[in-house]
Amino acid sequence: MKSIPRRVVTGIKNGKSAIIQDETVQNAVDHLKGLLISDIWNTQETPASLDNEKRIPNTAFPQTPKNGTYFRYVSIPPDADLGITAQPGQPHPLMHQTDTLDYIIILSGELYLIMEEGETLLQPGDIVIQRGTNHAWSNRSDQPCIQLAVLIDAQNN
């Protein structure tokens, strides 16, 4: 398994703010060859509890708890490494939709955000506000793309 950044978790110890955990993330999973996902943190309700953590299994497509959130680290390999080929006039093979509002930032590499109508190239520092729409990610480069995402349970009206 590839190494991903460490996770530092704060809390209260002896009545004072403290670092409770400082470790390399342990729950990283390769769902497809080279597609590394780690659900770093989640909340189970709103308002969020600050007292404890409920570990969740990593899934290729998120299963955000009702009224909850996910904080997700994703390393997306090149399409060629995944064996993905998008056919002209057909939906991208990884097209999907979730009932979440997602705040995504590209940390490194590049990635295409593909919608049912149109696409755009994302590069480091770009931010995406993904509002529960059908979408796919396509890495047409020869290097992985790393993104961080906060997924918030939402409802389509």
Rank of each mutant, 00 (worst) to 15 (best):
M1I: 09
M1N: 10
M1F: 13
S3D: 14
P5K: 10
V9P: 06
V9H: 09
T10I: 15
N14R: 10
K16L: 00
K16Y: 00
I19F: 14
I19R: 12
I20D: 12
Q21T: 15
D22F: 00
E23F: 09
T24Y: 08
T24K: 01
Q26R: 02
N27W: 13
A28Q: 07
A28P: 07
V29D: 05
V29Q: 05
D30W: 15
D30L: 15
H31F: 09
H31G: 05
L32I: 03
L32A: 11
L32S: 08
G34F: 00
G34V: 08
G34R: 03
L36P: 03
I37Q: 06
S38Q: 13
S38V: 15
D39W: 01
I40E: 11
N42C: 12
Q44R: 12
P47T: 12
A48I: 14
S49W: 12
L50G: 09
D51E: 09
N52C: 05
N52V: 06
I56Q: 15
P57W: 06
P57A: 07
P57F: 07
T59E: 13
A60E: 10
A60Y: 03
A60D: 07
A60V: 11
F61N: 07
P62H: 02
P65K: 12
K66H: 04
K66V: 00
N67R: 09
N67I: 06
T69E: 07
Y70T: 01
Y70R: 03
F71M: 11
F71Q: 11
R72K: 07
Y73Q: 09
V74P: 06
S75Y: 07
I76M: 14
P77N: 04
P77K: 02
P78C: 07
A80C: 13
D81E: 06
L82C: 09
I84Y: 13
I84P: 07
A86V: 00
A86Q: 10
G89F: 13
H92N: 14
H92F: 11
P93L: 11
L94V: 01
Q97S: 05
Q97Y: 02
Q97G: 03
D99P: 03
T100W: 11
T100Q: 08
T100C: 08
L101K: 01
L101T: 05
L101N: 02
D102K: 00
D102E: 03
Y103V: 04
I104D: 06
I104W: 04
I104T: 08
I105R: 01
I106S: 02
Y112H: 10
L113D: 03
I114N: 10
E117V: 13
G118I: 08
G118S: 08
G118C: 07
L121H: 00
L122F: 06
Q123D: 02
Q123W: 03
P124L: 01
P124T: 01
G125Y: 04
G125I: 07
D126L: 04
I127Q: 04
I127R: 01
I127A: 05
V128S: 02
Q130E: 10
Q130T: 08
R131C: 15
N134H: 13
N134M: 15
A136M: 05
W137D: 14
S138C: 13
S138E: 10
Q143H: 12
Q143S: 11
Q143P: 07
P144K: 06
L148R: 04
V150S: 13
L151V: 06
L151M: 09
L151A: 01
L151Q: 02
I152H: 03
I152D: 04
D153M: 05
A154S: 12
N156K: 15
